[in-house]
Design a binder for these strands. Structure first.
Lengths: 134, 134
DNA sequence: CTGGATCCGAGACGATACTG
DNA sequence: CAGTATCGTCTCGGATCCAG
């Protein structure tokens, strides 16, 4: 967002190079951040500190295990901060880091796009499958 | 991008609801579109019609098989158009659909973010692992 | 309440060999 | 050139049970 988006081809060139780097860390990072559950968790956690069970109910479809795994990975990558309150019963809150907050707008755009084109995608898929069947 | 992003909380509410829908198609769509290789292919194909081998060289790290699978999935979802020229040797070109082009800016922002924070993420990861080791 | 531990099936992924 | 087919490996992800 720091650069003007008037000419896109330059950036595409840069990105191609970035993807070319051996060990492809760019693709790896994207895989973590843009994963199915990661996006859901990141978006849900953007409203402020969220608790484990709160996330579990909000995301609906995620299993306990995958929520745990996703949270650990995001914490490891420095996108979430995990705060434990040593009370009874225990209470744990997850908060986005600044780095993650800088990503929030993009994630929002991504989910918005997905919502808007959900129907088109389903239609395209049906068309493709029909053409493949005969 | 169409709406102003001054007040984010409203959209977060919408998205939470979207994620709650049973069968969670939103997460599924995102999983296809935002997958590790999908992003790479989509970004690479944004420069215009691209050929199979061109993609294979550009992305570097992707296997023949995964490139094929990714291309098929993106075509099935209506994000890519596959054009076959019945020449010898055969020539196949992949082009983004309008729907995919509308996603391009977001994908660019995503990869830009990943590039910018690649170091931070590696550092956070090292810190986390060090804390976990002892 | 917030997880960890384990098992297990399904799909992701890579390597290799073959084809129109 | 642009794939397909097959195989073996690895990870994802759900189910279940256990624990601080």
């Amino acid at each position: 967002m720091s650069r003007s988006h008037t000419d896109v081809s330059d950036q595409v060139g840069d990105l191609s190079e970035a993807f070319e780097k051996e060990a492809c860390p760019l693709a790896e990072v994207l895989d973590h951040v843009a994963g199915k559950w990661s996006i859901a968790v990141l978006v849900a956690a953007a409203r402020g500190p969220v608790r484990f069970t709160e996330l579990e109910r909000t995301i609906e479809g995620i299993s306990r295990r995958m929520l745990t795994v996703t949270l650990r990975r995001l914490e490891r990558d420095g996108l979430l901060v995990r705060t434990v309150y040593p009370t009874v019963p225990p209470k744990v809150e997850y908060t986005l880091t600044d780095m993650a907050r800088r990503l929030h707008g993009t994630l929002l755009a991504l989910t918005e796009w997905a919502q808007r084109h959900r129907g088109d995608i389903a239609a395209a898929r049906a068309r493709y499958d029909a053409a493949n069947a005969r």
